[in-house]
Every structure is written in structure tokens, then in C-alpha cells.
């Protein structure tokens, strides 16, 4: 079963097999990169004679930025605050933002997963990483992997809740872009 609400793929010419295989391929790559849950709808339109490859997707609701309290437990202790790290993946990012905010001399790390900040202001709401930016980066990587190799003229229009990716061998003209947009609108309304 598709984890997405809508997943349509259309290839011009007699390429039913190609369309079916690309469906599997897109699923495999999105799953590998852990992106599949963040995409709600996906429309793929390919014309292999011209040739170009396009993907339009609607993203599920935005991902909030990661804060210090998501990474570990923040507690008030004598002389400051203590963070007990639960998710070490973002340790480096956390240290970087704490150093920036409080200065190195006020951030102490007595154990591998414990940080003590000598300050009166709580670090709980400090932003550690912008997951949305990371997600968009991963998504671009996935789209480049999905597009057939050699389609090196690319256009990537990303907004907060959707993306349109076009890749072609020849230069992208205004006609091609509007043809793709038209087609995708048709697929959406069908």
C-alpha cells in the first residue's frame, strides 16, 4: 500500500513498464532517505521523446525546528542549567549554538552526555537545528537521484508546502515548463 495519499505517474508513448518501474524506484529512493512520510501527494510526468522528467509534490505539514529540550532534558541546577542529552545525533549542533549564545567558558561538559550552563536564562527554547532546511536538502538529493541520469538541465521550485522539479537533456524553455505545469494541473484535477 502506498503511504502517500496520491501518487500518479504518466509517461508519454508506450512506456507502461517504465511508468510502473519508476513508481517502484521512487518509492525505494524516498524510503531509503526516510522522506516518504513527509510527502502527501506526488505527480510525475515524463516525456521520453523530448526528453524531460518532472515531479510535483505536496508536502505534509511543516516540521518545527529542533530545540534544546527536544535533544535532552533541561533541568535547573545550582548555578545554572543542566542538559542531559538523549539524542546524541545533534550534540555537535547543540554545542555550537550554546557556545555562540553563552560563550565557551560558561558551557561545561563534565560527562559525555551532560552539559552544564552557567547562566540564569534557560537554554530550553534555543534552536539547535533547522530540520526543515535539512529536509529540503535531502529532498533535492532524492530528486536528483530519481531523475534519469544525464538530464542535467534542472529547475527546482520549492515553496513551504510544495515542490516542482524538472530535469531535461536540452535547455529548458518557457514552453516546456508551461506544458509541464499545465499537465500536472490536469493530473491534479483528474
Amino acid at each position: 500500500m502506498d503511504p502517500m495519499e496520491v501518487f500518479k505517474i504518466e509517461v508519454t508513448g508506450e512506456e507502461e513498464f517504465g511508468a510502473k518501474k519508476y513508481r517502484e524506484l521512487i518509492m525505494d529512493i524516498l524510503q531509503d532517505l526516510g522522506l516518504i512520510r513527509s510527502i502527501g501527494r506526488l505527480y510525475v510526468y515524463v516525456d521520453i521523446k523530448k526528453p524531460f522528467f518532472s515531479v510535483y509534490g505536496l508536502l505534509r505539514s511543516g516540521i518545527p525546528p529542533l530545540t534544546a529540550k527536544d535533544v535532552g532534558d533541561v533541568m535547573k541546577v545550582q548555578g545554572g542549567y543542566q542538559i542531559k542529552i538523549n539524542d546524541e545525533e545533534h550534540m555537535a549542533d547543540l554545542l555550537r549554538v550554546l557556545w555562540e549564545r553563552y560563550g565557551r567558558e560558561r558551557v561545561d561538559q563534565p560527562a559525555r552526555d551532560v552539559l552544564i550552563i552557567a547562566s540564569d536564562s534557560s537554554p530550553a527554547d534555543i534552536t539547535v537545528a533547522d530540520l526543515e532546511a535539512e529536509f529540503l536538502q535531502d529532498l533535492t538529493d532524492a530528486l536528483v537521484r530519481i531523475a534519469p541520469e544525464g538530464f542535467r538541465n534542472r529547475r527546482n521550485e520549492m515553496t513551504k508546502d510544495s515542490f516542482l522539479f524538472i530535469a531535461a537533456e536540452e535547455q529548458l524553455t518557457q514552453e516546456i515548463v508551461s506544458e509541464i505545469k499545465e499537465k500536472i494541473r490536469e493530473m491534479e484535477n483528474a
Binding site: E15, G18, K21, P51
Partner: peptide
């Protein structure tokens, strides 16, 4: 062995 892709036309 030449390894090609999924599109007949290509």
C-alpha cells in the same frame, strides 16, 4: 553486457 534502463525508446 550493456546495462540499460526502463524506457523502451531509450
Amino acid at each position: 553486457v550493456f546495462i540499460y534502463g526502463n524506457f523502451q525508446d531509450c
